[in-house]
Design a protein around this nucleic acid. Sequence first.
DNA 1: CGTTGTTTTGAGATATGTCAACAGGGGTGG
DNA 2: CCACCCCTGTTGACATATCTCAAAACAACG
Lengths: 207, 207
Amino acid sequence: MLFRESEIPSEVYTLFDGWVFRFKLLPDGRRQILSFLLPGDFLVPQALRRQPLRFSVQALTDVTLCVFDAGEVTRVVLERPLLLRQLEGLCVRDSLSADDRLTDIGRRSAQERIARLILEFEFRLGIRNLVNGNSFPFPLRQEHIGDALGLTKVHVSRTLGSLRRQGLIALTGNYLVVRDRVALMAIAGLRDQNVNHLSEDIAVLAS
Amino acid sequence: MLFRESEIPSEVYTLFDGWVFRFKLLPDGRRQILSFLLPGDFLVPQALRRQPLRFSVQALTDVTLCVFDAGEVTRVVLERPLLLRQLEGLCVRDSLSADDRLTDIGRRSAQERIARLILEFEFRLGIRNLVNGNSFPFPLRQEHIGDALGLTKVHVSRTLGSLRRQGLIALTGNYLVVRDRVALMAIAGLRDQNVNHLSEDIAVLAS
DNA sequence: CGTTGTTTTGAGATATGTCAACAGGGGTGG
DNA sequence: CCACCCCTGTTGACATATCTCAAAACAACG
């Protein structure tokens, strides 16, 4: 567990290796996963605003982080408009993916949601050269998928099973392989190459 | 219709009066409303990044906008770190409400979602002094509510009807009145005063 | 008064949820 | 090396929230 809701982190991170997710917990135990962070992603830009966090952050795997002191980063960033601009850009990208996820959950079927999630991971990992061939590491439990997509783990199991039986994917232990990408994209309702605009957040702080 | 998906707006706006919503349209006609903008809200901060819009924006009522040239604003803002910081803050707030909405749609029942939406409006309008007593203007059609919350307009009608019959709200024409606020908050799962952090975006550009 | 858009109501269908049992894998400890 | 346990995933039977389609009731408005 990296951060807990309502704490004010004094540090800010870059995810160097491993998977992480942001989520909210309702008083009765329901959980909503808000987003997954992959290597290279910037962890909680909100931290720079010194407000209590409105969500928690937890690791899915072992992770290695680059730590920055929040105060320091704020100072540095305030002196360089370009950096600040990039920070804002990062934040804009976040909203855009939040919009996508919202549309998934609000208006798409379980199959569509899951197909898209898989393709999203493939895409984001591809950018980082973490896909080899058509298989990539996949450390999520089915319960995570459910909590991210507004489904039940049981229903995720069934849907995933159906995708597998259709020969679209295979899911062994901690790896996922995309067996029939075009069929999967058809289900996901994607035509062209997924023009996502997630990018190398690591570059932002590198400078 | 103010903006269409995939266009690159050359201007940026502040919503001076009226209601507006941001949404996505799927190829088969399904619609997801991403957020509602109220007087004082800043319209499409994304515009400052000169990227094609990933959503459309449409007015719910007659609106009056303050227009700013995007290039100009960018220039001004880049010269004033504090302004830029506020812009970033605005964007962070957007993500936070996206997270809330995500949790609503992913993990809450129709009743909860609708109760929360109503209270959200009451709160946001309250801040702007647009609530009088316990009633406020409410220009949404039930279909908008549905498209925002991932429901069907028919189901919205039923749920709203049930809330009305329980004596929690009344909805006449274009006004909504909250008749039993504590019961409504109970349904919404809200305990204390909704500590929302939406704020006067108008102030940002005023300076 | 018609017209057009919105809401309400009903009956029936379906996707997804619930609960509970079982199966498999991978560790751990004896 | 076996026995056991815990965790995850699978399957089945059933429950239910929400959807669909369609008709009727309203409301606003010229």
